[in-house]
């Protein structure tokens, strides 16, 4: 306690000294730094609000400027306002909401299944040697096979309806979630395992209080990759025997040469991708508030 008292006194003294210097020489602020300049910080600095939107906004401005200047072929890349107008038409005609809903539903089902599978498999393989022997190699084999290459097989097995689309999305989602969660689980510091033994934790308590929270950072990395993956898979899948959905809308537009509709589709994908990623980041920051890293 005595040290903390002495630190506080020393701080007060230093503040008083600074105060006197500033009082006597108010213009001297820069000079005060010269005898021993501060080290350059290696952390990227404080986070500014909504900075992540600057890049996309700049890109949009460039696009609008080029269109207005007549530098872009409107048949290939229509102006932003054309895209917005088309989106308005499609929305009021009722096709865009239906397509979005269908796509959202597919992505959500596939994502939910993939998330559950990824977490359950990672826990089973990370917490038991038998589980690891059975699961880890199998998942890595699955990872080595391009998921989109499984489409023909899945159509044969599950029919050409919704089931195979959801199954493919689930696979795209579960792999990064499994890999990152499993890596985080096996990377738990052995010193914490020792601590759990010393503190007499039961196996369940050990999992709940040490393993799961310790693996959360890795899980969130996987989750973000999975969320993006579910949207990526969708574009390809909706080319195949779909009658609605954003991908379907875009490929129809390709047949009729409607580049503005294609851009509407891409825009919606982009917006949803960005929103879902931001939601995951937000949850991540809430849950991992104990972490002090570069990003905080």
């Amino acid at each position: 306690m005595s040290t903390s008292a002495s630190t506080s006194t020393s701080t007060t003294t230093s503040t008083t000294t600074t105060a006197t210097t500033t009082a006597t020489a108010p213009l001297d602020t820069e000079a005060r730094d010269t005898p021993r300049s501060r080290r350059r910080g290696l952390s990227p600095g404080r986070r500014l609000p909504a900075t992540r939107l600057i890049g996309p906004a700049l890109l949009l401005a460039l696009w609008a400027a080029a269109s207005a200047a007549g530098q872009l072929d409107p048949g290939a890349i229509p102006a932003p306002w054309t895209v917005v107008r088309t989106a308005g038409h499609l929305w009021s005609a009722g096709t865009l909401p239906t397509d979005i809903l269908t796509s959202l539903e597919r992505a959500a089902y596939g994502f939910a299944i993939g998330l559950t599978a990824g977490v359950v498999l990672a826990l089973a393989s990370g917490l038991s040697r038998v589980g690891e022997a059975l699961i880890d190699g199998t998942v890595n084999l699955n990872r080595a096979i391009p998921t989109l290459g499984l489409i023909p097989l899945f159509i044969l097995w599950l029919g050409i309806g919704e089931a195979f689309k959801i199954a493919i999305i689930a696979i795209v989602v579960y792999i990064p979630i499994y890999l990152n969660t499993h890596a985080a689980l096996s990377g738990i510091d052995s010193r914490f395992v020792e601590l759990a033994e010393v503190q007499g934790l039961s196996r369940l308590q050990f999992v709940r209080k040490i393993v799961v929270p310790g693996a959360l950072p890795g899980f969130f990395v996987g989750l973000r990759l999975g969320v993006t993956g579910s949207w990526l898979g969708l574009v390809v899948l909706e080319q195949i025997n779909a009658t609605s959905g954003l991908g379907y809308m875009m490929f129809q537009a390709q047949n009729y040469g409607q580049s503005d509709v294609i851009l509407v589709g891409l825009l919606v994908y982009g917006v949803f991708g960005l929103i879902s990623d931001s939601v995951v980041r937000l949850i991540e920051r809430r849950v991992l508030s104990w972490r002090r890293t570069l990003s905080s």
Partner: peptide, 14 residues
């Protein structure tokens, strides 16, 4: 029996 280690070994997430 309690053990105190060289590092404090506090769980950073608690």
């Amino acid at each position: 029996v309690s053990v105190v280690f060289q590092d404090s070994r506090l769980l950073p997430w608690r």
